[in-house]
Nucleic acid binder design. Sequence first.
DNA 1: ATTAACTTAGATTTTTATTATCCGCGTTTA
DNA 2: TAAACGCGGATAATAAAAATCTAAGTTAAT
Lengths: 137, 137
Amino acid sequence: MKTSIKTDYAIHSLMLLAKNNNEMSVNELAKNQDISKSYLAKVMQKLSNANIVQSTEGKSGGYKLTKPPEEISLSEVVKIMEGKINVFECLDDKRNCKIKKRCKIHFAFKNSYQKMLKELEKTSIKDILDPELKKER
Amino acid sequence: MKTSIKTDYAIHSLMLLAKNNNEMSVNELAKNQDISKSYLAKVMQKLSNANIVQSTEGKSGGYKLTKPPEEISLSEVVKIMEGKINVFECLDDKRNCKIKKRCKIHFAFKNSYQKMLKELEKTSIKDILDPELKKER
DNA sequence: ATTAACTTAGATTTTTATTATCCGCGTTTA
DNA sequence: TAAACGCGGATAATAAAAATCTAAGTTAAT
């Protein structure tokens, strides 16, 4: 059980946008992280659709945050990037669990996932903007 | 982000063992759930190695619980079946995150996963043994 | 003692999901 | 009007998960 690399890309891209007050293009973001540009483009699209970043099209376009980094929690990012999550198999429709609504396994896993998100709410993009690096210089 | 089907198989098998006080073979367990026998065999092996069930070999062998179902939490099962979990990609070594120990992302995700497990500790195999079915009859 | 039903463990294959790439289009700036 | 960008769909490559296969060792009954 792990998060997709998309969540990783998203978090690090948001961090870059937070550091750089300016707009950044996918190209810049990808180069900065040394990752696939076209894949990152998808990630940025998702963030854009979720209104966590704003895009400007055309030449010299790019992305910028729609709100200050302290207002973007990891929970929010995870929810956007991981999409509809089925922490327990039973939660999606592969096994046709007939008592889904009353299923206690379902209930327990759903709750536990909520607790996870709740914990992630405590940390914002600003919080993780490595202040330790500054200290070390 | 979701748990593997192995966790699903494990939980349901433990439930079956809890209901059936007797030993059950992989064959019986698989038929009962209508799933792959040889794959379930792997799952049961893991549970056996983790000492959550006990196996007896040879003809008329099978598995039984090593402790009462109220003492087996979903947290325990998840930990066994999902193995070393990387809720955040950064936690494993794909990206060579140099500051792992001090990384705040790492820290946040680790914590959130702990919260998830803690919540799952509250529910035991006994708890999910569908008492609602009994009520409805 | 031999057979049948079982667990164990490794190796291999199949299937599915994730990650990455590609392409054509619409938009903006120089 | 060309260059640099975002958008979104389609497709390909890769990796991981799930399933299957095989051979061995164990026990109980015949």
